[in-house]
């Protein structure tokens, strides 16, 4: 085991590196797309159900199928890392669009009414009042999307771009347990580190949630 790690250090580190950007870049893309989509569902309530349904359908498409379908729709190679990024972005968007919509809708009420009545314009109200108030719920969604992406990336190993997932295929091919264990441990550690990172950022961004009762 230790011998395996020592002998394959460079390989393991590059797999880990690939895993990091393959899982986190799609989260970023998902956030960038989900924010305006979520906002539109608040502005035009009739959009809510279609957006939620679309998210549900997208999320239920098997990842393998997505890897095949995406190159047919947009010009990326089936075996390109970009294919994985696009597929995982779709999942992130599916998860986050609903979270953002629900979070923004849940903060509508007396406070947003008061904001409008005091002379906030819509865009400033969104960034100054609604988004900050919706942060705790949105961050919870972000944690789910991030951790789920980190676990999903491994599936990319099937088409040869799987970050730590490549360690699994290698282990299976060689009937050798060490790379599989290293892959699992690093995946779980990465998920734990990213999750804790988001929690820390959230604590820093939302000090008022800990102000608590008198």
């Amino acid at each position: 085991m230790i011998a395996y790690i020592q002998g394959n250090q460079a390989r393991i580190l590059s797999d880990l590196g690939q895993h990091v950007w393959l899982s986190l870049l799609p989260v970023l893309v998902g956030v960038v797309l989900a924010l305006p989509a979520g906002y539109l569902t608040v502005r035009y309530r009739w959009l809510y159900q279609p957006v939620v349904n679309l998210g549900g359908i997208l999320y239920s498409v098997p990842s393998l199928a997505l890897f095949v379908v995406i190159p047919a729709i947009i010009p990326v190679g089936t075996l390109s890392p970009l294919n994985i990024v696009v597929a995982l972005s779709v999942y992130s968007f599916a998860l986050l669009a609903r979270t953002v919509a629900d979070a923004l809708i849940s903060v509508q009420g007396e406070t947003t009414w008061a904001a409008a009545a005091m002379g906030f314009r819509p865009l400033r109200q969104l960034f100054g009042v609604e988004l900050p108030m919706a942060l705790p719920v949105m961050m919870a969604g972000l944690r789910v999307a991030t951790v789920s992406n980190i676990s999903l990336v491994s599936v990319g190993a099937i088409i040869g771009v799987g970050g730590l997932g490549d360690l699994f295929t290698r282990g299976l091919q060689l009937s050798y347990l060490a790379p599989i264990i290293v892959g699992i441990v690093l995946s779980v550690l990465l998920a734990a580190v990213c999750d804790s990172g988001i929690v820390l950022v959230q604590r820093w961004l939302t000090p008022w949630t800990r102000a608590g009762a008198r």
């Binding site: 007396e110 406070t111 009414w113 008061a114 904001a115 409008a116 009545a117 005091m118 002379g119 906030f120 314009r121 009042v129 900050p132 108030m133 942060l135 939302t206 008022w208």
Partner: peptide, 21 residues
């Protein structure tokens, strides 16, 4: 409307304060 409202003080039932500020 926005400029008009900034010249009119507004107080509501549950104060409607911003919890994050």
């Amino acid at each position: 409307a926005a400029l008009l409202r900034r010249r009119i003080g507004y107080v509501i039932q549950h104060a409607g304060l911003f919890p994050h500020r």
